[in-house]
Design a binder for these strands. Structure first.
Ligand SMILES: [Mn+2]
Ligand SMILES: [Mn+2]
Ligand SMILES: [Zn+2]
Ligand SMILES: [Zn+2]
Lengths: 144, 144
DNA sequence: TCCTTTGATGCGAATGTTTGCAATAAGGAA
DNA sequence: TTCCTTATTGCAAACATTCGCATCAAAGGA
């Protein structure tokens, strides 16, 4: 499914101009279906055609996030990751000690998100964020 | 209350050395009671005595986070913020369009965190993280 | 108190991300 | 189709954060 067309249309509808750079970046991240860092997007671009400046990649990814077409989050390793909604909504449990990442099931968080959207009139969806904590292994291996 | 002593003791108990640099950084962030960026910690240090290298500030803040004595999170402006548990556990709703930040009430999220801790055996507490989304004002001012 | 071990610091370089600004080109109007 | 307005790009510099490594000093034992 060419989701990228939908994304591009939404951008155009919001009054943004569709440039070859934006088309290429949207296509790449929409089809990839997983998290990508800005640098990974750059690599895919280099594989295909002429290069795009890294600042433009960041600006386009941020544009998608601001308009609810992608999510941005921090996996704790000093890099930021991006994904379109193709990746599906979910929460990552990131261990701040060993860096392991677990994805949790929708139903484990959706009640709280519903509540937040109701009470605070704040639109969390499509959600995709990280909760940093300690996994069992790391907790056990500590005297505390 | 000199929480900093507690923090320093915990670090020592975990086998870390207590250096003048660590003492100073822990004192500053524990007494401040709010979020601070690494650069803000540096400013406080400069006001007081001789300088500490910024890399040491980052390393010490990360040490506190890894040992559950402080939390680190991203307020979406390209800077990372840190706070000790003096700041209290809570979740920020960060609007990715206008940048506004709302703090939500403990009870609005704690059920989900309990569930996560049970099901995944993952220690979320003391929790302090951000959910990025759209506030009412920004949602309303969009054609979508 | 002095010595030894080894974890912590400072420094400078590398990496990741943002920003200001002049040049460019998308999209609408004529 | 051509022109105009102004959003977008590329570039280079600034900024935020991490890392490797030589040096230093905290902590514990003699
Ligand atoms: Mn994910
Ligand atoms: Mn807070
Ligand atoms: Zn872990
Ligand atoms: Zn807003």
């Amino acid at each position: 499914m060419p989701h990228c067309h939908t994304y591009l249309k939404k951008l155009r509808d919001h009054g943004y101009r569709i440039t070859p750079q934006r088309e290429m970046i949207v296509k790449i991240i929409a089809h990839y279906g997983r998290h990508m860092s800005a640098e990974e997007v750059m690599e895919k671009i280099r594989e295909k055609t002429s290069s795009i400046n890294i600042a433009t990649v960041y600006r386009t990814l941020d544009l998608l996030v601001e308009n609810g077409l992608a999510s941005r989050f921090d996996l704790g390793n000093g890099k930021t990751a991006y994904a379109t909604s193709e990746h599906g909504p979910h929460v990552h449990l990131v261990c701040k000690h060993c860096g392991s990442v677990t994805e949790i099931t929708e139903s484990d968080i959706s009640a709280s998100l519903d509540r937040i959207e109701d009470l605070y009139d704040f639109d969390c969806r499509p959600y995709h964020f990280s909760i940093h904590g300690l996994c069992r292994d790391c907790r056990d291996s500590k005297t505390d």
